[in-house]
Structure formats: C-alpha cells, structure tokens
Amino acid sequence: MSFIFLAGITLILTINCSLAQEDITAINVIQGEGLASPLIDENVSVEAIVVGDFQGKDKLNGFYLQEEDRDADNLPGTSEGIFVYDPGELGKIENISIGDTVQVTGIVKETFGLTQIKLSEITKLNETASSFQVTVLPVTLPAEDTKYFERYEGMLVELPQEFIITSNYNFALYGEKTLSPSSRLPNPTSLSKPGLPAITLQTLNQRSKLILDDGSKKSYPDPGAFPLTLQSGDSVRGITGILSFGFGEYRIHPQSIRNISVSNPSPHKPESVGGTIKIANFNVENYFNGDGQGGGFQTSREAKSQAEFERQRARIFDAITDI
C-alpha cells in the first residue's frame, strides 16, 4: 500500500466532466439520515469524484466516491461519500484513479452495515475539462454519540488529533490497529464498578476509537502497510483517509499519515535482577499444525496452509529465543 502525503484540508481535483443530470441520484439521498440506506435494492446512477482507490481482490475490491462540494446537501446527518463494490473490476477496465469523475450505475446494498453500490456500469467522464473541489473534513474524537461516524461514512476525512495505538490485537492477522485520542483505552472494570459505571465508561470507549485499517482483505499481510515497530502506546498524527465501516467497527483507510512517533519503545531485553533462574511464560495462540503430517489445512483456527504454518512457527521460535 502506498501513501499520498497531502497538505492542508482542501483537495483540489482536476477532472473531466460531461453528462446530462437526469436520472442521477445524489449520494446523500442514497445514504439518508439513518444507519441504513432508504434505497436498498434500488438501481441508481451516481456522478461523483473518486476519492479512494482500493481496487482489486487483494484490497477492498472497489473504490470510494464523494460528491463535489457544490452538490453537497450540507445536512449534518447525511454522508456525501459511498463505497462502490466492483467484483467485475470494471473500474480497472475503465482505468479510473483518484481524482477522476465517473458515472456509476448499480444496486444499492447494505453489506455488514456498510452502504454501498454493487457496480454494473461505469463511465469515466472526459469531454469538458473543469476543476471541482472536495473539502477534506476534520473528524475529532470522542464522538458525540455512537452514530456520529455514520455522517462521514465513505468520505475523505482528516484526523487532526494525536492518536495513541491502543491495541494491536488484529495487526498480524488483518493489518489493523486500534486508535484512541490522547491515551490508551482502559478496561472499564479496572477503573469503575461493574454495572452502570462500567457500562458508561465502555460507551465512552466506543465513542473514542477508530480502526486504522490497511485497506485490504489479506490475512497475515506481508509486508504490512504499517511499520512492524509501531506498537501499543506509540502515537500517530495527521491521518487523512477514507472513513468507512466493516466487521462491526468504524475504521479509516489512510492515504497519508503525517507523523509516526515511537513513544513506547520495547526494551531490547529485561533489566537484570540478579540470580541464575529464568522463568518465562509464552502463549503461542492457536498453534495448530494441520494433521501433523504436512496436510490437513485449512485448520479450523489460524494457519490456512503449510506455508502459513511455517511462517507462524518461525516467528514463535524467534520470539521464544529472544526471551
């Protein structure tokens, strides 16, 4: 994955545009003001600008469109962006990229909570050159409520705050890191009594996090989109990307990260405490070797092939040896 470094919060896109406007549906109408589209299973045509390119089966199999500023409805509850699911890779055939204005036609779907258009036709507009503007909107956390992010679903946004890596749990498997502003998110019952106090803190946690996503569907991406040394407690600032939804979580697919700071480095080795006895504990987490004879993959958990198992095995051995 490559990053495009942007300056400021306004993206000026030079595009080519020529199309009659009849039968064109605005993205904000498709998105509506609720969590789901009011136009599910309807066939629609949209004309908008490509703001996120994740084409190909190893990525997200599609791209993101956003209305230019002049066509935005300026209502606080409706999004101006949408994901276009392109399983036939029609966008590649049309050779689209970020900054192009396109007309797309397809069926509106809600897929695991994400409003999208399943593409059937696409045209890159190229007759009359003009220059339109898409403003990159700032998004800050904690959110006002759990529905706050929905108004930005599919849009190009900027996160101006400093964010802390609060969790690496899905990093190796899916290339994801959980972000929170200012500090790592606490376990609610570590600070509050079970019941309403802990539930209140958990609700705040939910409003205070986003998933930093690598923009792909790969399992065990190698190499990953983010440095392997970026760990919990480190900070990132100035993220620009597409705010989206998937697997029950709002997430951002970054196009640029202005600054990465390793503020929580791991010590090369533990400090000496004297003595000669070493005690260690290591969880190898779902270390299954198929049928034990080099076959039996995919296993019910973890390794999907012998090669994937060998990679897992080598990394575990390296980690244990370092202990």
Rank of each mutant, 00 (worst) to 15 (best):
V236K: 02
S300V: 04
V104H: 11
A319W: 05
E150C: 04
I165L: 11
Q231I: 03
L210P: 08
E80F: 02
S232A: 14
K109V: 07
G91Y: 01
S300M: 05
V29T: 15
Q116W: 00
P221N: 02
S305M: 05
P221W: 05
P270F: 11
Y169K: 11
S261N: 15
S244Y: 06
K92P: 00
I257W: 06
G195D: 10
L156N: 06
L185V: 06
K269P: 00
I40M: 04
G113F: 10
I277G: 00
Y169H: 04
V139E: 06
E153C: 00
P188G: 12
F171W: 04
S244V: 12
N289Q: 08
F112M: 05
I117R: 07
F226C: 03
I211K: 02
S130F: 06
F245Q: 13
E80G: 02
S131E: 14
T25Y: 05
L75Y: 04
Q312L: 14
D214Y: 05
M155C: 13
S244I: 13
Y174H: 13
R70V: 10
G290P: 06
I260S: 07
I122K: 07
Q133V: 14
S97K: 15
E176K: 14
V236C: 01
Q66S: 08
V108W: 08
I15D: 08
S219I: 05
T14S: 09
G175F: 12
V273C: 12
L204R: 02
S272Y: 11
S216K: 10
R184Q: 15
E162C: 02
V84P: 00
L156V: 02
L13S: 10
L173R: 14
D214C: 15
N286L: 09
Q202A: 12
P160R: 05
S45T: 15
E89M: 07
V108S: 06
E110H: 06
S232V: 08
G241T: 07
T25P: 07
P221F: 03
G175C: 10
Y85N: 03
P142L: 01
T123Y: 13
F309M: 11
D222V: 02
T123H: 15
I15R: 12
T101P: 04
I93R: 06
S97N: 12
A172W: 01
Y85R: 11
T321V: 01
G34S: 14
S131F: 08
F112H: 08
G91P: 03
E42P: 02
K193M: 13
N16M: 03
T14F: 08
V139K: 06
P186K: 05
V284M: 15
K218V: 07
V46R: 10
E285S: 03
R70L: 13
K118E: 12
N259Y: 02
P254W: 03
E67T: 09
Q231F: 03
I9C: 03
P194R: 08
G62D: 01
S266A: 15
G52Y: 04
S305L: 02
G77F: 12
F149G: 01
L173Y: 06
I12T: 15
L228K: 13
T115H: 05
E68A: 11
Y148K: 01
D71A: 07
S263H: 00
